[in-house]
């Protein structure tokens, strides 16, 4: 399972998102997933190999056409929101 956290530049927002995805996976007892933080441009390439792309609502239109399941998060700080979305996608 390859999860990609995407923000505009691949730094800042996506790093917080990556941290919180890892915390969410832990609380779901989900093992064997890798999580990377990347920017939109990189995501368009990497996304082809990712299973799940997690990003913020505003960036979803920029990621259209990717094969991966795209999860849109309102606030990347919100671990509860991320956990709920991942639970739905993974379990």
């Amino acid at each position: 399972m390859r999860i990609v956290a995407v923000c505009g530049l691949g730094y800042g927002t996506s790093v917080i998102l990556k941290n919180n995805i890892e915390k969410a996976l832990k609380s779901l007892d989900y093992e064997g997933a890798t999580v990377e933080a990347v920017g939109v441009a990189e995501a368009r390439q990497l996304g082809a190999m990712a299973n799940i792309v997690v990003t913020t609502e505003e960036l979803v239109p920029l990621l259209e056409g990717l094969n991966a399941e795209i999860i849109a998060i309102r606030h990347v700080i919100d671990i509860a929101e991320i956990t709920k979305a991942l639970e739905k996608a993974l379990l």
């Binding site: 505009g8 530049l9 800042g12 960036l59 606030h75 700080i77």
Partner: peptide
């Protein structure tokens, strides 16, 4: 410019923005 181009995705929590550009 990041917000002008990509929108308010840097609003990471209710009422809080984390502004930055590329390192």
């Amino acid at each position: 410019r990041v917000v002008e181009e990509l929108g308010p995705y840097i609003v990471i929590a209710e009422g809080i923005a984390l502004a930055h550009a590329s390192p």
